[in-house]
Structures are given as structure tokens and as C-alpha cells.
Amino acid sequence: MPPAPDGPHTPHSTGLPALDAPSAHVEALAERGMQRHYRRGTLIIQEGERGDTLYIVRSGRLRAFVADASGKELTLGLYGPGEYVGEMSLDGGPRSASVETCEPTVCAVVARDVLLTYIAEQPGFALELMARLIRRARLATDNARSVALIDVYGRLTRLLDQLATAPDAQGQRTVTERLTHQQIASHLACSREMVSRLLKDLETGGYLATQERRLVLLKPLPARW
């Protein structure tokens, strides 16, 4: 599940609700959906297809991505419990991205008519939905800027900084997601070999280590490499 590029949301500056706390609306809406269980690696949304359902994650994790004809992928975001995907196609248009499960996942699948009925009953949820769409649009813009204007190392350090925990007593930060080199490459729009080389260089330089298949940032990463 990806962090917002703008830092903590400030409701007073935009009039939009904060998104950090679990949403009571999302929980209530999930109760109206159909609970479905998916195995790891299940493609639940196909880019380009027509769809009118919203998927709310109850447990597990989803990955949204786009792919070209050769199979090269770009990861758009990771989504965990309390988050949802599929809202972009509720206007009747085609799906803008594919979504697959990263692990065994349970989702509440909410049909468009159920969502519209809930919004009519609880109009405040429309503002919350709009705020999330705005945040995702900003994130998409930020990611596009990153791919176009920042080199691969810069994109790597940006991703690690976003995913890492706060520093512990020793100043070390842990990337809680167990990401493979290929998964990181999909986030950065580069080759797996490039990711492997950069991570190896950082490990040799004493900036990074791997513990229980998780990346640990031993000290602040250099601005340039």
C-alpha cells in the first residue's frame, strides 16, 4: 500500500477529510459487500476490461500495476486492510490498471448500485471518496515525474525512504515489506539487474543489509551514487 507523496494530510487546508485513520464508512460499506477469498497471485482486475465493482481489502494485500505488450510491468501501489481498489471504473469506463493478490487475501466486493445507494444515504462518504481519488491522482503525477526526471538510484532511495519505518534507537530503519528485486524493479520502471547492482553496492558500502528477507537501512542513504 503506497504512502501519499504530500506527507500527512491537512484537512483544514483543503476541506477534505484525513485518510490516515481507518474509515468507518469503508467498514460499513464492506459489510454490504460479498466476502470473497483469493489465493496469492490471483488477478482480480484486468486492465482494459469493463467493471462496476469496488474491492475493499479485509485481510491480505493487493498490487495495482500496468503492463505493456512485452510483459514489462510498473507497480502503481500496494493496498492492505481498510483500503480499496476499483473505484476508477465506477463511471462505466474501462479498468485503468490490473490488480492482483500479493498473498492470500479476503475482499468485500461491492457492486456499483450498492455503492451509489450508500452514498445517497451517507453523502459524507462522497467527500472521502473524492479525497482518496485526489490523493491517488497526485501520487500518479508524482510517480510520472519521478520516472521522467529522476535517475534509477534516486527513485530507489525515494521508494526505500517511503516504505521504511521510523529510525530505531540505533538509527536503523526497516522496510517491512518483503520485496523481491523484481518487485522493486516494477516499482521503479527499471530492470531487475539494475536493482540488484544498486542494492549490492549499497550493502558493500555499509548503508544497507538484509535481515529475514527484509531490507534494513543502516544509516541515511547518500543523495548521489
Rank of each mutant, 00 (worst) to 15 (best):
V66L: 04
R61L: 14
P104L: 08
G92E: 10
V114E: 05
L62H: 01
G92C: 09
M34H: 11
L62F: 04
V57N: 07
E47I: 01
Y38F: 15
A69E: 15
E83S: 13
I45E: 02
I56Y: 02
I45V: 15
T53F: 00
E83T: 14
E49N: 12
C107W: 00
L78Q: 07
Y84K: 00
A64C: 14
Y79D: 08
P94I: 08
I45K: 06
V66M: 06
R40A: 15
I44H: 07
G93Q: 10
V99M: 04
D91G: 14
E49H: 12
T53K: 07
A67S: 15
S59Y: 04
L76W: 06
R95D: 07
S89R: 01
M34Q: 15
D91C: 12
T53V: 12
G48R: 07
A97Q: 08
Y84R: 05
V106K: 07
D91V: 14
V99P: 00
T42D: 14
S96M: 08
S98F: 03
L76Y: 05
A108D: 09
G51V: 04
V109L: 08
L90P: 05
G86H: 05
R58S: 09
I45N: 02
Y38K: 06
P104T: 13
E73T: 15
Y38V: 06
E83M: 10
R40V: 11
L43P: 00
E83H: 11
R58V: 12
R61Q: 15
V106E: 15
G48P: 05
V109M: 03
P94Q: 09
